[in-house]
Structure formats: C-alpha cells, structure tokens
Design a binder for these strands. Structure first.
Length: 126
DNA sequence: TTTATGACAGACG
DNA sequence: CCGTCTGCCATAA
C-alpha cells in the first residue's frame, strides 16, 4: 500500500492488519479465523482483499484458506511460490505442494479465541 | 445505482 | 472426495 494512500486506510483494515501482525512465525491463520477475531462485520473475503493490499511489516504469507491451500495462486503463481518459501523458511510443513499442514501449524491466539476445528487427535505432533 | 468479481467458507448432493 | 451453490462484503466499471 503506497504511503500516500495511508490516510484512506479505514480502521477496518487496520484492525485486520493488527491481528495478522500478531501471528507468530511458523504459525498460520485462515482468512475466516482472522475475520472471526475481528469481531466486527469483517468477512473472510474482506480479509482476502486486505491481504492483497497488505503494507510492509504485515506477514500476509501466514494467512491461508481453511484447508491450508495457498489461495494467492489464483492471483499470481509467482507470489504463490514466494508465500511457500517464506512459510518453509519458518519451518512450516506442507502436506501437498501448496497445502500447509494445518493440524500442525494453525494458530490458536488466546485460549479458544478461534473456534477450533474438530481435532481428531491433536497430541501427536512431533 | 447495478452488476460483476474475488488471496473465503460452509452446506449439499 | 469431488463439484456446485450461496452468503458474504469491499471495489471496480
């Protein structure tokens, strides 16, 4: 996002970026997770728009879709490769070429802040 | 103002 | 495990 457009950034987006900035390296959130944490009327789609315009310093690569797929691929395969490298550099494991292992890396911010997927077995991460 | 289009998600068959 | 449809909401034309 160009700095001369900064004044046009709504609090809506700032809220989204604030959440995303909190995601630790090596962990990921889904678009829906971020939307849910924003509590206001922010939809998963809106989070996608925000990520497409993420300013520097916002770890946009740590947001993937609920299945762990790198949805950015629809926009740019180059950026998709970038996202994959950035995640792998943080130790994120993939269960498919462009699918993050969500069971292992999905982030749960505060205790139960996000609705958990029904975890069949969560204790077996190695 | 209306319509179309997404870096989404959930329900259904 | 698919593909399709729907709800969602900010933007662009």
């Amino acid at each position: 996002m160009p700095s001369h457009h900064r004044e046009s950034m709504t609090p809506l987006y700032e809220q989204i970026y604030r959440i995303v900035r909190r995601i630790p390296a090596g962990r990921v959130l889904s678009y829906g997770d971020v939307a849910a944490l924003c509590s206001s009327s922010v939809s998963a789609r809106t989070v996608g728009w925000a990520m497409a315009r993420a300013p520097e310093g916002v770890p946009w690569h740590r947001v993937v879709n609920q299945k762990g797929h790198l949805s950015i691929g629809k926009r740019s395969v180059i950026l998709q490769e970038l996202q994959k490298s950035l995640l792998q550099a943080e130790g994120v494991r993939f269960i498919a070429p462009y699918q993050v292992d969500m069971n292992r890396h999905r982030w749960y911010p505060t205790k139960r802040a996000t609705k958990r997927p029904r975890r069949t077995r969560m204790g077996d991460e190695r």
